[in-house]
């Protein structure tokens, strides 16, 4: 009996130790969070005291929204939409090629795995705004450099997510396919792809919506789309136009969101 009491006590002690370790980890993260809030000045009373009223003063200047220039917004909006679709497609193409090399379970060799993940990391590391500026310098103003910037930057994120989905897929059906004499390529296409397709569709549609929003950012550096309109209105301090443009973008993003939901539903049964 005393032996069992001892084992119970030992188990409880170890269990408690684990809980404390977890608590300690949370504490470390919390310290980092509070520290960064302090560094960026959120705890600086002077900045807050002057900043908050300034924002409040700006808000009335944005009302009512001024839609007078709407005929000039149609072409840039179409551009932005096209940029997001074209950019995402480019990203999907390259991500699909790279992801099988960047997933541990499908990569043909460790060297190719390292190269593929390095490519994904680099494209993810360079922000689309920087890519946009470089490409505008290279190929000139317009939607083309913007599209390439969106596409290249998206490869990093889409490829990484695709690869992660592949690494997380069930091994059992893969084994079953292999046991039936399927080649490695057949295994990938007929056993892995059907499993990861819903996850891939999810991130792709999310990325499409993200790219539409990002197209405004690259538009600001002259890479096409509705972003240029917004940045121009901001420069000449036409805040009523800015609010009108933001409303238009909000409507489009909302429409895009429901559209991508419908498309996803339609494709993934």
């Amino acid at each position: 009996m005393s032996a069992s009491v001892d084992t119970h006590r030992a188990i409880l002690r170890r269990h408690e130790l684990r809980w404390r370790q977890q608590f300690l980890r949370v504490l470390v993260i919390l310290t980092a969070v509070v520290g960064s809030l302090a560094v960026v000045g959120l705890f600086d009373p002077n900045r807050i005291a002057t900043g908050v009223p300034a924002i409040v003063n700006l808000l009335p200047e944005m009302f009512p929204p001024d839609f007078a220039r709407w005929p000039f917004w149609i072409k840039p909006l179409i551009d932005s939409m096209a940029m997001s679709i074209a950019g995402t497609s480019i990203a999907v193409f390259f991500s699909l090629l790279l992801c099988f090399f960047a997933a541990r379970n499908t990569s043909p060799s460790p060297a190719l795995y390292v190269i593929a993940t390095a490519v994904l990391n680099v494209t993810r590391a360079v922000p689309e705004l920087i890519l946009g500026m470089i490409l505008v310098a290279a190929v000139g103003f317009g939607a083309l450099p913007g599209t390439l910037a969106l596409g290249l930057h998206s490869v990093g994120m889409l490829g990484k997510f695709y690869a992660e989905a592949i690494e997380l897929c069930d091994q059992e059906p893969i084994e079953a396919a292999r046991s039936s004499g399927a080649s490695e390529l057949q295994v990938i296409v007929h056993s892995i792809l059907p499993q990861v397709f819903p996850a891939m569709a999810d991130v792709t549609f999310y990325r499409w919506e993200y790219n539409f929003r990002a197209s405004m950012v690259v538009g600001a550096v002259g890479a096409g789309g509705i972003g240029l309109e917004i940045i121009s209105a901001l420069r000449i301090m036409e805040y009523q136009q800015v609010s009108a443009l933001l409303l238009v973008v909000l409507v489009v993003v909302t429409a895009l969101d429901s559209m991508s939901n419908a498309l996803r539903h339609w494709m993934v049964q």
Binding site: S4, H8, I11, H15
Partner: peptide
């Protein structure tokens, strides 16, 4: 919060009952 000691004792007794006390953690 961590559940009371009495609850953890009950859990260990239950694990003993089903023969898995050595797998508790």
């Amino acid at each position: 919060l961590p559940l009371p000691q009495s609850d953890r004792q009950k859990a260990l007794s239950a694990l003993e009952r089903v023969g898995l006390i050595d797998k508790a953690l």
